[in-house]
Design a protein around this nucleic acid. Structure first.
Lengths: 212, 212
DNA sequence: GCCTGTGAAGCTATTCACAGCT
DNA sequence: AGCTGTGAATAGCTTCACAGGC
């Protein structure tokens, strides 16, 4: 129904709206939100059409209402568990950042091969041996996985996540994952990002930056 | 001249080509590379037009030649230094991953506020107090920065990087950065990615996954 | 026959521009 | 006057489809 780009920006708008809420702002115009998000005002309005909450001319959008509206679209109706595979530096960074930050979404299980890392809690998330992956993912009805393992392991871990019922994967490994079309993958490719940035840092391109 | 998407994919193709090279493959067809990269063959051919190396029908592209061609386009003519700001879990993950991986690009300086982390080397990269950021970035003519600090610090760090002459930034903080148009920013937004994936994991969308 | 390179078509996403409202 | 919501225009990107070559 909605495009990944729109969904992504809505996620961003919501975070910015929380910031406004904290600073006591009750209403916001598309222009203000646009400048915070570094997009055009028309883009914001277009994206917000997906939310279905109307803004009023003169005062703009009610911040609280918009947050709720975006939540209604983005958040799972009930608690949605996420599995993290790979508890290296990257995995730990993710575990440290997320707890309590998203409504109805939580990293409920982490997996690693290293026996020294399992059977304890890291940032209040239980860690298991990777051998138990299928069993626990199935038991907990987990639908979302985060792959934070080395390139050499990534495809095999993805296969196992998919077999266990996962329908979406955030992939931090520097290789593309091959999955059935029902599974949605977002590849967070740090190498690609860095090479891209290095390339455009060399040209004096007056691009609007930011774009894909 | 070339679009960020094309440049990003070329970076990916090159990594895949290195893999082929190691496994002794000398020539590759656009279809093979496409399936490895999870894109269409026509996309690969279109992207490779930017490289200017011709493939031959029958045998396809010479792997070695293609790698060189992509390098010619992507790599800096001479050593290009990168500055990393923030030596938390994420910063360390990046420092652990990159050394020696990209031709003519190296993380040459890392910065942190924590006095316990500075004046030593992490993965053979010198760590400095963040107060020295401008001085060292200028001295080393660094043009690319990686922001791996908390949201609250990110904009201020970006400002300082830009003031010191940086022309491209990879931003891992969960907030958009406001920079002059000459500076290229790529926002690696983990929160956005996770919310997007969670959203599409819930729908049975038969999207081709992968897209933005 | 089956490949590459590429004009042209088709799509998707963004931006313009303005009617309608307050 | 200045905002939102949105059809219409534009820009950007991907895919088709085929000429040309081995």
């Amino acid at each position: 129904m909605h495009s990944p780009k729109t969904i992504g920006r809505l996620s961003l708008y919501r975070r910015l709206l929380y910031g406004l809420l904290e600073s006591g702002t009750e209403h916001v115009h598309s222009h203000r939100l646009a400048s915070l998000a570094e997009v055009m005002a028309a883009q914001v309005r277009r994206d917000l059409m997906a939310v279905g909450r109307a803004g009023t001319p003169r005062r703009g959008y009610n911040v609280r209402e918009l947050i709720d509206g975006i939540g209604h679209l983005l958040d799972a109706p009930k608690q949605q568990g996420v599995a993290l595979v790979g508890i290296g530096n990257l995995g730990r960074a993710i575990l440290a950042y997320f707890p309590g930050r998203r409504p109805n979404m939580e990293i409920v299980a982490a997996f690693d091969v290293d026996p020294g890392k399992v059977n304890r809690s890291v940032h209040s998330c239980r860690c298991y041996r990777v051998e138990k992956l299928e069993e626990i993912v199935r038991e907990m009805s987990i639908r979302v996985g985060i792959v934070a393992v080395p390139a050499s392991e990534a495809q095999q871990i993805a296969d196992r996540l998919v077999r266990a019922g996962v329908r979406g994967i955030v992939n931090f490994a520097p290789v593309p994952l091959h999955v059935p079309p029902r599974v949605y993958v977002d590849h967070m490719d740090v190498t690609m990002s860095l090479e891209k940035v290095a390339y455009f840092a060399r040209r004096n391109t007056v691009r609007k930056s930011k774009k894909a």
